[in-house]
Design a protein around this nucleic acid. Structure first.
Lengths: 333, 333
DNA sequence: ATTAGCACTTGAGAAAAAGAAGTGCTAGGA
DNA sequence: TCCTAGCACTTCTTTTTCTCAAGTGCTAAT
């Protein structure tokens, strides 16, 4: 159990380091803590022993360790009021009755990336969580049409197709077969189901219209259902801890991989949590030891998903947490 | 007019520099050129005087200047045969009859980005070049529907919408009004046309169904019609000339701006061209003095667009040009 | 016209020196 | 027992100096 002064000290150090990105010296702290630098130094030594602080070299100031941030986040942080300015900008988005939910998400994450200089991520459901609800075809002209696939989670994807000698009727026939037979199948299994369960049944028909069948097969094969949106990637370049090409390369590569992003959704919940906000610090982030991910899930009748903010370990936890809470609650109403 | 030997020398220097990314010394060249290094040096001095070569410092080897690359590209380069391996991979894409044109583009650009370690860009038409062809609504269930907007250039965008107390009939009424009245309008003008020309006409109707009107208004307001696809952004991080955070920041920012990318489509044609391939070297690229853009337009009955490859000024011109030519001709057939 | 030879320039890297920022520890005071 | 002033010590950072390697430019001879 930490003493009151130790908690205060840790809080100050985290705060200072977040501001300056540099190790924090005893001298700087002693002014605010109203005691001598020597006293601060001995307290710092204690906190280092416990594992909450670190030095970058023997005679440097202290920086918070991963455990230090964790302690801060779990015990010391008190989410700031959102500033009037931030609040106002967000309200403009959420009060706009004409915007659909997905627009609100996109716009607010865009806004937050700009305001904070961090990176934001919106994660919809993965393809195995989406089941085929309906497939539809809309003719455009004699040669072109659009195939629309809708999933039970409300995800929609379309694909333009072009045929030379195929009538709309023929396509509608296959489409209605699919609607009858494989609605409810997880999207990522539809193409194999088509191949192994449907094709044999409608075998004779398929032979006559192989092109149509193949095209539809491909619609599902490529159906991304990725439903992932990363905004403000380049903000990472603004943080001093990422001023090294190899680090950047690693981070950008990870942010491009669907796998990495999906994992944000699944990573084990760390013990303590603030409401439904979950925080993954440093190694926990699975991206880079110097990064933190703060995420939350939102649930509405229509849709559910995850929004996350990614930034340096040295990120402004108070602000980000309150922003996320605010967005979550707005999305849910 | 350059002598034969000077041309040869320039070609060798460009080739070497592309390979090594370092200044090229007279000693290295003299072996292949079958004369002494002193001779090479004096020729180098001449070429520098003309402005085709540069030094990084007084006693360094030479690198091609921007004009040097230009001369190379316009006069010396002979596009390589595409290697068997590259050719094979591309053929797999183009021979796949089931793929739609847009898939071929996506896949081949993805492939080329991987093969070359450069960045590829596919540019469709800008929104002012797309005119509204048709708007359509597909009901999903009682509350949800999808609005589909199709343009004359074949671009399609959809938007999910959700209503509480609106019947499909009401929506169809507005939709058909739009289809009657403003088909043919450039997409980026539709929303203002709705507001200033259509709304007054159907004013009474709109008042009763403001939500429906507003939603559709927003569909067009946000209609991105961006139609831009950048693949292999992170490859830029692999090039030694971009090992500096500020440069990276600048380049990545530019590659995120629609404006910059659109400009690729419009930049003035530089004099000489290889077929329909256009090359913008260094400053000409408008992105970064150390970058080159190589682009070409493709035209099919259905669609036209631009594909571009972006990489360091020191890029493998021969290979990229032949790859682009190959893709262009395949897309057009 | 070409080349061998040599003086000269510059960058890159190592080593040395000086300075700044902090810490840890000790001993004395509240 | 806790706090603090003071000082020795460590490490990083920056600057300076040196040395080396890689190249060039020029000149005189072929």
């Amino acid at each position: 159990m930490l003493t009151k002064r130790q908690k205060n000290l840790l809080k100050l150090i985290v705060g200072e380091h977040i501001k300056s990105a540099k190790p924090v010296s005893s001298k700087l702290i002693c002014k605010t803590l109203k005691c001598s630098s020597a006293t601060v130094r001995s307290e710092m030594a204690t906190l280092e022993e416990i594992g909450l602080l670190e030095k970058t070299h023997t005679s440097s100031g202290r920086i918070p360790s991963e455990a230090g941030y964790r302690y801060y986040v779990d015990n010391l942080m008190n989410p700031k009021e959102i500033s009037g300015e931030d609040m106002l900008k967000l309200q403009i988005i959420f009060n706009n009755q004409q915007l659909q939910l997905s627009d609100c998400i996109t716009k607010s994450l865009q806004l937050i990336a700009d305001m904070t200089n961090y990176t934001t991520i919106a994660l919809g459901n993965a393809s195995h969580e989406n089941r085929l609800k309906e497939i539809n075809v809309v003719p455009i002209d004699t040669k072109h049409m659009i195939i629309i696939v809708v999933t039970d989670k409300g995800h929609v994807e379309h694909k333009n197709i072009e045929f030379d000698n195929v009538s709309l009727e023929e396509i509608k026939k296959i489409i209605s077969l699919i609607n009858e037979l494989i609605v409810g199948t997880p999207i990522d299994e539809v193409s194999s189901k088509l191949e192994f369960e449907i094709k044999p049944i409608i075998g004779r028909y398929v032979k006559e219209h192989e092109i149509v069948y193949n095209t539809i097969y491909n619609v599902f094969k490529d159906f991304s259902s990725k439903n992932i949106n990363v905004v403000g990637r380049n903000n990472i370049l603004k943080q001093p801890e990422f001023n090294n090409i190899d680090k950047i390369k690693n981070i950008f590569t990870k942010l491009d991989e669907e796998d990495t992003l999906r994992k944000i959704d699944c990573i084990e919940d760390i013990e303590n949590e603030n409401g439904n906000i979950k925080i993954f610090i440093g190694k926990e982030s699975n991206i880079d030891d110097d990064m933190t991910i703060i995420k939350t899930k939102y649930h509405t009748q229509a849709e559910e998903g995850t929004i996350a903010i990614v930034g340096p370990k040295r990120m402004d936890y108070d602000r980000v947490v309150s922003l996320l809470e605010y967005i979550k609650s707005n999305l849910e109403n």
